[in-house]
Nucleic acid binder design. Sequence first.
DNA 1: CACGCTCTCACTGCT
DNA 2: TGAGAGCGTG
Length: 766
Amino acid sequence: MIEQLNPAQRQAVTYPEQHVLVLAGAGSGKTRVLTTRIAWLIQQKGVSPYAFLAVTFTNKAAREMLARIEALLPIDTQGLWVGTFHGLCNRLLRYHHRDAGLPQGFQILDSADQLAAIRRLFKSLNYDESQFTPRDMQHYINSCKEQGLRADACPAQTKIEQHMREFYAQYQQQCEREGVVDFAELLLRAYELLQNNSILRQHYQERFKHLLVDEFQDTNPLQYAWLTLLAGENSSIFAVGDDDQSIYAFRGADVSNMYRFEQDYARDHVIRLEQNYRSSGHILDAANQLIAGNQTRLGKKLWTDAGQGEPISLQVLDTDQLEAQWVLDEIQKLLDAGTAAQEIAVLYRSNAQSRVIEHHLFTAGIPYRVYGGLRFFERQEIKHVLAYLRLLDNPDDDTSWLRVVNFPTRGIGARSLEQLGAQAQEHNSSLYRAVPYMTGRAGSNLAAFVQLLQDMRQAAQQQTLPELLQYVIRQSGLAEHYQKQKEGQERLENLQELVNAAAVFVQEEGLQNFAAGQIPDAPNIDDQGSLAAEIGAAPVTPMSPLGAFLTHASLEAGDTQAERGQQAIQLMTVHAAKGLEFDAVFLTGLEEGIFPHERSLDSLDDIEEERRLMYVAMTRARQKLFLTRAHTRMLHGQRRYYHNSRFIDELPAENMRKLAAQPGGFAAADSANWGQQLGPNMGSWQPKSGRRASAVYGGSLRTQAVTVNGKEFRIGMGVEHPRFGVGTILRVSGSGDDAQAEIQFQQAGKKNLALAIAKLDIIAGT
DNA sequence: CACGCTCTCACTGCT
DNA sequence: TGAGAGCGTG
C-alpha cells in the first residue's frame, strides 16, 4: 500500500497519530496521501472505520475520496464519515434535530432561495434598498455566520451596522418560523449543537479519533472552529492543504487558518509534499519563481524528476479577437498532432472573456465545453417542482409557497397575496396557515391550491418517489404550461430528467420500495442506534424518500455539465480549473486590470491572491503552457487598452519562449506597424525591467492630443469626472469614438477612459 | 397578468 | 455588450 509512495508521502501516511499539517503542493498526490492514510490506519493500526471523519468542500471530492478508499480496502467502509462540511453538519442536525432546536423535516435554502427569502423580508419590513440591497444583506448575514456570529454578537457601532444587525435578527426569526436553514446555518447550528451539548460533544469527540481535512486552505473561521471543537483530547487532525492555492478569500476562506493550525496544533509536525508528478520542469520553475513573490506563505518549492520539457510560450496580440484566433490556430495544430481535445484547456480570469474564444471555436467547428453556468437543480422548472415537493413536507415554507402558489397561474395575483400576507402577519402564521382567514374569490382560489397540495400529499403516501414526481409535474399544471410555451421543450425534458434522477436516487439509497412520504425504519444507518442508547439522545429520525431527495437536491446542485470524457476543448475560469490538469493549457488575457483583476490592484492582499490564482493556473499544465495577452479588448461594450500583466514580468526568462508577433489586426488598419514594434523583446515579452511597458503605446500611435465632440484633450490637462473626481491626463490615443485617455485621478487612481463616453469636464487653464 | 421597454451594472462561485 | 430587474401599458 505504501511501497509506491515517495518518502514525504510515506512519512505523511504513516505519521504518528497526532495533529499534522501536510503542505501539499499542486500535483503532489494529496488525495492519494489522504486516502492511503485512512486505509493504512485501518489496516496496519487496526483503527475502526467508525473513528474517521474526512471532510471536503465539494461533493465531487467527497465521492472521489470514498471511491479511492474503497479501492484500497477490501473491507466494509460503512461507518466512515466522508462528506462535505455541509453534508456532515446536515447529518448531525438530522440525527439531533431536537437538541439543535430544529423541526424534523427542516428544509435547506440554497443561495437563490436565501436571496428570495431576504427579498421577501425586505418587502414585508418595508426596507428601501438605498442603504443596502438584498444582495448586500445576504453577503453580510453569511459572513457573520461564517465567523460564528449571531445577530446579537455583531458589531453595532454605526447606524448602518445597527440596521444590518437588526435585519439579520429578523431574517433569522423568519427562518425559524418557516423551518428552513441556509448553508451557513447548517455549519453554525452544528457548531452550536456541539458547543452547548456536552454529552453529544463528548460522544463525538470520543468517536472521531481521526479528523482529516482536504483543501484546508479554503476553510473559513467557522469551519476551523467546528473542526477543532470536534477534536477531543485523543483525536488528531490531519490537515492537508496548500496555502499557495488559496483563491477563495472572497467567499470567506481564510488562509490564516493554516498558520494558526500550525502554531496551535501542529508545531514541528509539518510535512511538505513538494515532488510534483504533473508538470514539466520549465512550468514548475516558472511557477515557483512567481509564487515566491508573495510575502505571506509557509514556503514550499515544487520539483520534478521528469525533465525540463518545453519552455512556456508567450504570445502578444493586438486585440482580443486576434488572441482568440491565435489560440484557435494553436489548438488546431495540437489537434492535428494528435492531442485529445479534452486534454486542452483555455483558461481566463473572468467568464466574460469566454465569448470571443467560443465564437472562434464555434466558427471553426471545433467542439468545446464551457464550464460554469446553470446547474441542474438550479433551473427554474426544477426549482418549481421542488417547491411543490417542499410544501408537501413543510407547508410553512413561505419561500416555496410564493414560488408556486400562482405558477402556473391560477388566479392568485399580487393583490390576493398581499392580503394573505397581512392575514399571516396578523395571526403570526405562515401564509399557508393564513388561508382559512381569506374570503371571496381570493379565498376560494387559495383553498383550491391548498386542496391541490393535499391531494399531492395523499399521493406521496401511496406512490414511490418517481411516481410522485410524475404526478406533481402533471397535477400542478407545470407539464401543460411548458407544453404550451414556445421554448418549453427543453424544460419538459429536464422535468423528465428529474423523474429519472429521483429513480436513480431511490435506487442508490435503497429506498425504492418505499412510498415517497413514508419514513423507513433505520436499522442500518450508522451507529445512531447505539448512540441513542448510549447517551439517551432524542430518537433517531430517518427521513422519508421525499425528504432525503429534497436534502440531496439542496446540498448537491448537480454538475454544471455532464461527463468530462467528451471530445471537446475545455473552457473555464482559473477558479474552476483548480484541481484539474491538462496536457496543454492556454492562459489568456494576461493584462494588468484583467489578470490581476482591476478590483484587486490597490490591495497587497488581493494582489497576492491574484498571484496565487496565476500559480494555480500555471500548474494545471502538464506539458504545454501558452500565455497570451492582447493590447486591447472589448469589455462592457467598450474598447479598452491594457498593459502587460505584472505576472508576465515576474516569470524567469530562461523558462520562456518568446513567439514572433502576429501581423495584421487593427495595427495594419491603423497603418502603424505594430507587428514590427512587437518583435522579440519589445511588446511581446521583456525581461524583468519592462514593468512600465510603454512600448505598448509607443511609436506612431503615440499622440499628444485628441479632439472628441469638439473638445480637445491634451496630455497634462486637468479634468473632472463625476465619479472619479479630479485627475490629470497622462496619455491619449486613438481617434473619434475610439479615442482613449489614461488619467491619473487624485482619489480613484489611474483609469483608462473612452473620451466619447466618459463624462469629463476640462478644468480651465490646465 | 403578460409583454416589452428602459435602465443599470458588470470577478471569481462551493454548499 | 447583454443579462436581469423594474416599470408602464394593452
